[in-house]
Amino acid sequence: MTISRNARMFLAALLGVGLAFIYIPLSVVVINSFNASKTFSWPPSRFTTIWWTKALENTGVREALKWSIFAGLSATAIALVLGTCLAFAVSRYQFFGREVISLLVVLPISLPGVVTGIALNNAFTKQLGMSTGLLTVVIGHATFCIVIVYNNAIARLRRMGTNLQEASMDLGANGITTFRLITLPNLASALFAGGLLAFGLSFDEIVVTTFTAGPGIQTLPIWIYNNLFRPNQAPIVNVVAATLVVLSVVPIYLSQRLSQDSTTGGRF
């Protein structure tokens, strides 16, 4: 294509500006975690790794990390089962209300988190008389994770078609054997991408968590939020923040490695 040299240079410069906009703040977070100053000061006058060892020993951070992983894994497991069931039903059957279902499933991530949050809190505590805790957090997270698994699974099921399944059944395999040997292996990488994404979403979620976690439960985002405005905790918050920035490379790497259909890591 004929784009003049000047136009190319101009666009490259704009791309550079955009990437700088994206990466300067993230780099600041990482650099700041080595900042020796106890309170915020920029530029750092001295560097240290002491906050990293302190953060590793911090019981609040450890507890929060434990809750986050536990809630994320539970919500992902529920979402994998429910999302896959729903994807099979919508892609392979005709039934009344099918369109409504595909609209309903996106609702939890389309509505503002604060609306979902207060609705669930109201239902749990006022209507059902439950106390908020780990269970309510998992229910809340699973609700908006279903759509992620559903989207990944249904896209794959539509592309797969039913030919292979029919062939398997024609050759004498029953429904369970066909699912185990044909459908599931073909679906696996889509489910992996969906599960990864669902876990990432749950791990990062703060708004719904605020309203569904009781005072006893702190996930990592809630811990960060609660300590954000405490000046003496700033160095530990910086380390946790930097860790999360660095870890964000992992899912991108994994999905580029494992998923043949997209380079987007499943976020789209």
Binding site: I22, Y23, P25, P221, L228, A241, L247, S248, T263, R267
Partner: peptide
């Protein structure tokens, strides 16, 4: 491919961390 990965990576960095980053900015 590299550029797509570069644009995607921050999506996985925590929401709170990104806003916290802008607080220091």
């Amino acid at each position: 491919k590299i550029l797509v990965a570069l644009v995607l990576t921050p999506l996985w960095a925590s929401y709170l961390v990104k806003i916290y980053a802008w607080r220091t900015m």
